[in-house]
Design a protein around this nucleic acid. Structure first.
Lengths: 324, 324
DNA sequence: CCCTTTATGCTCAGCTAGAGCATAAGAGGT
DNA sequence: ACCTCTTATGCTCTAGCTGAGCATAAAGGG
């Protein structure tokens, strides 16, 4: 076959979505390359000195933020060149792949990181936080998306409308917190996020986009990918504990689960699930700063991983009135 | 920071795990580059002419096998250089990334593909097929792994032994069909597959490896990744139907699920699940070549995807005697 | 001692999953 | 036509899990 006639060597970027939960808020580590540019995720090019991809990633995060990562997993490789960004300089003259990783760390102390900021991920996706009930952001989104679908008059627009309804819980459909990526991609496609205009080379028409901070390049898409993955994963793997300090109360554990999933959980049932699965054990001490009855402190039983097949933290939401 | 001083441009390979189910066997599309080399998965380098990664992948598969892909999803990006393979030519002088994709196609007609062979994936992973009960391959594997763990005397060998027991269903642990990748990686680490020796540059000591065909480079690892992903995914997304012809019987659907998961399912419960979820509808016709009572032909209701959140095909295994 | 707040225990009904019995409807042999 | 074998299809039963909510315990602050 016609091997290696147009074969290209490409630059590879390693990008990290570093997640922690701090005071009940899911936060992501960001850096600012320049004063008024949108924030970015820590990242850097793969270098020949990097033994493995993960090693390269850890290295860059440490350089850019001074932070040492623990749990790391690969998320996705993004490689489609921004369509017209470099149009003038030949067909994707500067194609680059980005390999995105998800990293989880326990609550960062105030000292670290040396550089970079922790920001609530809901600053970038306000509509993803359903913990206080309907976020103000959601309803308008559904509206604008629906209008877009109607206006664009795509073939199969009935199906597009259905997808929107399903993704954004319109018209009585249940909210599926795992569809974060799908929702972001719909907004992108509909041209409702600034990134869509930037990628097309247009200026962003004022007021046309929806609330939520933009990020550098396709970093917000990566964050959305990370959220989707994490929200799914806590249900079947005990990754939640990577985000906890060594000792914690069940309420803190629940608040962490709620922070990530963006929904409110039924307290008693949550405890029952945790207890049933032997995922934690009492340390013997209690936390007295609860504001009410003191809570027993727990620690993660790492051995649990070796006993049952796939322990995770299934989430049973609390339904709230007026939200069928 | 020290940007781009050692930054390297790398070659990127696109590799496809193309899966179909034919006559109750899960098959994967393979190519043979040379006569006596291990078979490989269709793949080729990313070229600058490729608009997107997926487009490049489709292109290569078509060139190498004449096959046009339908459903495609990204699996994983493998990038760690084989440790000592190129040691003589400097630190990873020829580093290459491979982006692996999973593709699903309906049963291939006899005409296609022009080149390449469909092979049962259990030829590469004999221990993964539990449909006929305990595969002969499994027990010896457990033995040799356990011995390896004891011999290697790793720190925490107790935990290693537990992991092995859990992954390979030793000592009464339940078989988890989704852990295909984990199992392969254990075998690799224990040096029980030829690939481990090849990567180290050693000759493979005769008779030291376990049954199961090897593949080119790290392609068997990619196949294992695909199997794991697919076995997990059929449970929560209706991907099973990507592998079915337009009309099929429920038994055929079940046989496909069994082929992929490698376990036997409870017939009546399987039908109940499918029926409950409205995933299929009758075409009105019947298949008479069943060998018994004719079966109603069904078709996939694509709309089902738009009605419920995440329809999939949960699998309820049939337990067999003597296998607690 | 009362009130507020959070932690923890426990109950109950509906639903789901795992198993297995029973019947239906073809084909092929006698 | 009848019997037998084979696969398809219907239905039942039970244990366990899930979603909800009531009730009690244990602190701190008036």
């Amino acid at each position: 076959m016609t091997e290696s006639h147009e074969e290209s060597r490409v630059r590879v970027d390693l990008t990290a979505v570093v997640v922690a939960v701090r005071a009940g808020d899911p936060v992501v580590l960001t850096v600012s390359r320049s004063a008024d540019a949108p924030v970015a995720l820590p990242s850097g090019p793969l270098e020949s000195a990097h033994r493995t991809l993960q090693a390269g990633l850890r290295n860059w995060v440490e350089i850019e933020t001074g932070f040492r990562l623990g749990y790391v997993e690969q998320l996705y490789t993004f490689g489609d060149p921004a369509p017209s960004k470099f149009e003038h300089s030949g067909p994707d003259a500067d194609r680059a792949l980005s390999i995105a990783y998800l990293a989880l760390v326990s609550p960062p102390g105030p000292a670290l990181p040396h550089q970079g900021d922790w920001r609530s991920w809901y600053a970038f996706f306000p509509w993803e936080d359903m913990r206080a009930g309907e976020p103000a952001a959601r309803e308008p989104l559904l509206d604008r998306l629906t209008k877009w679908a109607a206006r664009s008059g795509v073939a199969g627009d009935r199906e597009v409308a259905d997808r929107i309804r399903l993704a954004f819980a319109g018209n009585g459909a249940p909210w599926d917190e795992e569809r974060t990526l799908e929702r972001y991609e719909m907004l992108y496609e509909a041209g409702l996020v600034p990134e869509a205009f930037i990628d097309r080379g247009d200026a962003s028409p004022a007021g046309s986009t929806v609330p939520g901070l933009a990020m550098h390049a396709d970093h917000r898409r990566m964050l959305a990918t990370a959220i989707s993955r994490l929200r799914a994963k806590i249900k079947y793997r005990p990754v939640l504990f990577e985000l906890m300090p060594p000792a914690f109360t069940l309420s803190e554990l629940q608040r962490t689960a709620e922070a990530l999933s963006g929904i409110v959980l039924h307290k008693q049932n949550f405890r029952r699930l945790i207890a049933q699965q032997d995922l934690v054990e009492e340390t013997g001490e209690v936390a007295t700063d609860t504001g009410g009855r003191p809570a027993k402190l727990m620690r993660f039983r790492r051995e649990a991983t070796l006993e049952r097949p796939a322990p995770g933290v299934r989430l049973s939401a609390t339904r709230r009135a007026g939200f069928p």
